[in-house]
Simulated assay, not measured.
Amino acid sequence: MSKDLMGKKALVTGGTKGIGEAIVERLAAAGARVVTTARSMPYGGIPDHVERFVAADLSTQAGTDSVAEATLETLGGIDIVVHNAGRTDATAGVATSFDEEDWQRALALNLLAPVRLDRRLVPVMSGQGSGSVVHVTSIARTLPRSAPMPYAAAKAALNNYSKGLAAETAPAGVRVNRVLPGFIETTGVEHLLDDTAAAMGTDRNGARQAIMAALGGIPMGRTGRPAEVAELIAFLVSDRASWITGAEYVIDGGTVPTV
């Protein structure tokens, strides 16, 4: 594997499992020094390729401050920020069924956490004249009925913010792009498949097919893999993508039917 990120200083949020774990592994394999964060220490400890793990709640101002400070202290600067942390605790329902707490939680983690971290770290990149930011959003931005409404709306807002930030930071040499994963089969999704299978009286594959059908089908006929998303992000943060900024990359096997 090419060491095209050798010595680069990177922060990946939500990097202990699923897509985030794959991103951390891929950037480290390319030579980057990686700091990552999650709410709690992952089971089994921190792998050797992670330079520092920071336990923090990114949905709070204090959490993002602690991550930014620890990252700069450990790495002595920053070249790459991948905002992967994001989720929803709300269950499916009509828009009016979500209460104030559902909306606040969705916005705090999926929108405000990236905004707060960028506010601390992007000026460092601008000062050095280079850097790359990737906001991991979701195809829920274009298919809002595929996820709880607060999550979909927060991801749509993140997409808009990311595009605006890209235009502002481009003159300083900082690139900002966004990646929209579709149905990626992470450990968390495997639990969802098991729960769905139990509710439907079928097996995991039956549940998988049902969820794919609910999304309108996946033309490639399968779910995605975390490593596939990580590969795209590794390209976007590298010098191979030196003239790409403000761009949106959908990685969903063809799920989204619109142009």
Rank of each mutant, 00 (worst) to 15 (best):
G7W: 00
K8F: 05
A10F: 08
I19M: 15
E25Y: 00
L27Q: 04
G44S: 09
I46N: 01
I46H: 00
P47M: 13
H49Y: 15
T60K: 03
V67G: 05
V67S: 08
T74V: 09
D79R: 11
V82E: 00
N84K: 08
T88H: 12
T88P: 08
T88Y: 04
A95N: 05
S97L: 11
F98T: 05
W103D: 06
W103G: 09
R105P: 07
L107K: 03
N110Q: 11
A113H: 02
V115A: 13
L117I: 12
D118E: 15
L121G: 05
P123D: 12
S132E: 02
S132C: 12
P144S: 13
A152Y: 05
A152S: 15
K155S: 09
A166H: 04
A166P: 06
V176M: 11
V179G: 05
P181L: 11
T186S: 14
H191A: 12
L193W: 10
D195V: 11
G206W: 02
R208H: 04
Q209Y: 04
P219A: 13
G224R: 01
P226L: 09
P226K: 11
P226M: 14
L232K: 12
L232Q: 10
I233Y: 00
I233D: 01
S238G: 13
S238Q: 10
W243V: 15
G246I: 03
G254Y: 04
V259P: 00
